[in-house]
Design a protein around this nucleic acid. Structure first.
Lengths: 165, 165
DNA sequence: GTCGGTGCAAATGCTTTGCATTGAT
DNA sequence: ATCAATGCAAAGCATTTGCACCGAC
């Protein structure tokens, strides 16, 4: 429940240097590139679209034999954020979701209210609109988040999923 | 820290019937219209733009002499949500923010990364873009959330606020 | 008079932190 | 060797819930 369906992401040319970006970031701060941090970054790269801490922990554990603690996952998520590799996405008030952003405009998302499925979007128009609106108010833009809630074709095909929402 | 600057909201013609809307909603569900619920709704109407639970509690206590508990504020927030009067806004991963939505398109927001200040926006273009994007993916839209992060003119005027972020 | 509502305090669940041990450089 | 990172378990917070008493209908 933490990956999207047909997200056009997962660009390998972009993913490869992520590891170096992270290492460089760590070195700059006199922090160490550890096995655990590498494992977490790998798991992040394996997700395409969105993920949250708990799911990432599961992913880390599934991919590598090492045990990585929840605390380390959270600590690494913070570093990845500071390194500009991921960004929080605020889809769900109960949990923080993140997405890979390094090397691309933060993807906007389409979230299904019934299945929880999400699809990452990209649209230059969003950015243009954002810039226009901020400018009208005299603000300097640093970023944005655009989430569209809806019913996915998959969900509307099925009879009647869980109505608790 | 829970109200906006120049939000063009706070429309009295819309606010007046809110109370009846809420009463009708409660009656339909065989729930009671209590003093505490009225106080919370009043406080919600007094905010223009965004608010969160803790701030709302303070507002309730400031406006009415009655004591309303935190639990009741949270319980009432849920009812107001179910009544379609407010909606969660997801600006901050640590706390749920809400906004009044009854009778209007949910306002989109401009959030200042330095001062925390926020301004509610309205733009038909956002909605149009939203509909277009969802349609392209074959989804049925039920709503959206658009948050622009930036630096407000107020903040950029000041020398150098808190750089922790 | 009857349920539903309220306040309080305890419970939850995500996220963060203190501390002793382990490990990258 | 040194200094930071890890894991664990405990602490922190926003939010929710159980329960006994109170109040709207």
């Amino acid at each position: 429940m933490n990956t999207s369906a047909d997200a056009p992401l997962g660009n390998i040319e972009i993913l490869a240097p992520l590891c170096s970006v992270f290492r460089r970031f760590l070195k700059e701060r006199n922090l160490r590139y550890t096995q655990e941090r590498a494992d977490v970054l790998d798991a992040v790269m394996a997700t395409d679209g969105l993920f949250e801490a708990e799911g990432l922990l599961a992913e880390v554990r599934a991919r590598s034999a090492h045990t990585v603690s929840k605390a380390t996952v959270y600590r690494t998520l913070r570093l990845l954020q500071e390194a500009g590799i991921i960004t929080p996405t605020l889809i769900d008030p109960k949990q923080t979701h993140y997405q890979l952003v390094y090397g691309r405009t933060p993807a906007d998302t389409l979230v299904c209210m019934e299945t929880g499925q999400h699809v990452a979007l990209r649209s230059a128009e969003i950015e243009a609109l954002r810039n226009k609106l901020a400018e009208e108010h005299g603000w300097t833009v640093t970023g944005h988040r655009f989430v569209i809630y809806g019913i996915s074709p998959d969900a509307s095909t099925n009879t009647r999923p869980d109505p608790s929402a």
